[in-house]
Measured scan of single mutants.
Amino acid sequence: VDYIVEYDYDAQHDDELTIRKGDIIKNVKKLEEEGWLEGELNGKRGMFPDNFVKEIK
Rank of each mutant, 00 (worst) to 15 (best):
G35P: 06
L31F: 10
G22A: 05
L31I: 11
E32F: 13
L31P: 15
I25D: 00
L41Q: 04
I25H: 00
W36G: 01
V28K: 01
G43E: 08
K30A: 12
K30W: 06
V1D: 06
R20I: 07
E40H: 09
V53K: 02
I4L: 10
E38R: 11
T18I: 06
E16M: 06
D23P: 01
I24L: 06
I25Q: 00
E6G: 03
F52P: 02
P49Q: 14
K57I: 15
Y7A: 15
P49W: 08
I19D: 00
Y7W: 09
K30P: 14
G39Y: 00
V1W: 04
I25K: 01
K29M: 11
P49V: 04
R45Y: 11
E55R: 03
G22Q: 04
D2K: 15
D15L: 12
G22M: 07
E55Y: 02
E6Q: 08
E6T: 13
V1K: 14
P49D: 03
I25E: 00
E55L: 04
L41G: 03
E33H: 08
W36A: 03
G35E: 05
L41R: 04
L31W: 07
K21T: 09
G39E: 00
V53F: 02
K44Q: 13
E55V: 11
I25W: 00
E33N: 10
L31R: 14
K30I: 08
K30R: 08
G35L: 04
V1N: 12
V1Q: 10
G43P: 00
I4P: 01
Y7I: 08
R45M: 07
R20T: 08
V28F: 01
K21N: 06
Y3H: 02
W36N: 02
P49M: 14
I24P: 02
Y3L: 02
V5G: 14
I19T: 02
R20W: 04
F48Y: 02
Y9K: 05
F52W: 03
K26A: 10
I4G: 10
W36Q: 05
L31S: 08
G43N: 11
I25T: 01
V28G: 15
R45W: 09
G46R: 02
H13D: 10
P49T: 09
I4F: 11
D2T: 14
I19Y: 02
K57L: 15
I19M: 15
E6Y: 06
K29E: 11
L17R: 01
M47I: 11
L41A: 06
D8R: 05
V53I: 03
K57P: 15
L17G: 01
K30D: 07
D15H: 12
Q12N: 08
V53M: 02
K26F: 10
G43K: 09
K30G: 10
V53S: 04
K21G: 08
G43T: 06
M47A: 08
E33V: 13
W36M: 12
V5P: 01
G46Y: 01
F48V: 15
M47K: 10
D50Y: 05
D10G: 06
M47D: 03
D15R: 13
L31Y: 07
E33W: 12
E40K: 06
G43S: 09
G39K: 00
E40P: 00
D15T: 10
L31A: 14
K57A: 15
K54D: 09
G22E: 05
G46M: 01
D10I: 13
E38Y: 11
K29A: 11
F52A: 11
I56H: 06
V28I: 04
K57N: 15
T18S: 09
V1G: 11
N51A: 13
L37I: 05
K26W: 10
L37M: 13
E6R: 05
Y3K: 02
D2M: 15
D23V: 04
D15V: 10
N42D: 13
V5K: 00
Q12D: 06
I4N: 04
L41F: 08
G35I: 04
Y9G: 01
K29R: 12
N51T: 15
K54Q: 08
V5R: 00
D8M: 08
D50W: 07
I56W: 05
G46I: 05
I25N: 00
K26R: 15
Y3F: 04
E38M: 09
K57Q: 15
I4H: 04
F48M: 09
K44T: 14
K30E: 08
E40N: 09
E38W: 13
G35D: 06
G39D: 00
D2S: 14
M47P: 06
T18N: 10
H13F: 08
D23K: 03
E6H: 09
K21D: 03
T18R: 04
D2Y: 14
L37R: 03
F48L: 13
A11V: 02
